[in-house]
Design a protein around this nucleic acid. Sequence first.
DNA 1: CTGCCATTTTACCGGC
DNA 2: GCCGGTAAAATGGCAG
Lengths: 83, 83, 83, 83
Amino acid sequence: MTISAENLQLYIERIECLEEEKATSVSNIRDVYAEAKGNGFDAKIMRAIVKLRKLTTSEAAEQETMIDIYKAALGMVTSEVNS
Amino acid sequence: MTISAENLQLYIERIECLEEEKATSVSNIRDVYAEAKGNGFDAKIMRAIVKLRKLTTSEAAEQETMIDIYKAALGMVTSEVNS
Amino acid sequence: MTISAENLQLYIERIECLEEEKATSVSNIRDVYAEAKGNGFDAKIMRAIVKLRKLTTSEAAEQETMIDIYKAALGMVTSEVNS
Amino acid sequence: MTISAENLQLYIERIECLEEEKATSVSNIRDVYAEAKGNGFDAKIMRAIVKLRKLTTSEAAEQETMIDIYKAALGMVTSEVNS
DNA sequence: CTGCCATTTTACCGGC
DNA sequence: GCCGGTAAAATGGCAG
């Protein structure tokens, strides 16, 4: 046999373990939403809030990227716009 | 009424914490695939394997069966559906 | 045979035809970028511009959705913020 | 230098036009799947079929072989790798 | 050839 | 309980 079965086995096991961890987190998140809902909160709105707070962060990075690109674009133009 | 902004705050925080956990797991999973790849394994195939092991035997079989039926209907090799 | 092979055949063919169309468009898009690049333009920047112009439209809808959700949220609060 | 904003404009417009074409195709494809589903076909399986038909026979076989090898390495049923 | 980005597919969640 | 839409994951394609 040419592929090292042992190593493969170990990788697969590590992955499956991590996936279990992940599944637990997902499950817990669902539980919190459910609990909140049980106390009168609207899950949809909560999701929107969570999403928004994520975006506020990651969107900044995105904007930065865009700005960098446009800086580059401004260096590029050499343009004859009014031709 | 006792539904309070404070409670909402707490729920949001719990969720965000759990999402961070989840993100960590996801990141770790990616790392393991990357490491495996670095040692000559094929990540795509590994993903297929992990998925297979998740499926119960009957589910996997059922899906296969369906695909075979459709293939047969289209005259794509394999088996005799109309026997 | 229990699934109507003919209908299936037809659906598959229609899909494959449409996919071909789509592939042609994709290919043409690539060609335009390549041509532009050949004339000194930076494809990356062009992609950013195209993306931006798309976002400006579809992001408006997204924002609307968010606003609606928050309107609903404001209707919901009944809040005791200062408890 | 002749690289002009006007040319850029034209390229962008051509791209946007082609992207619209592409979007139409994508939309039509979705519609066909929806119609098929409405007539009792399983869209997921149909997608699998379309994908299969794209793959050359040899590619499909190769992938299958790889999966079997990995499965064998993990002691997951099927075949004898080390023969 | 590797890493990144876009697209596509899958799974989840909320509504009917 | 199912369906539709929405978000996450995975695959594939492109540039460097």
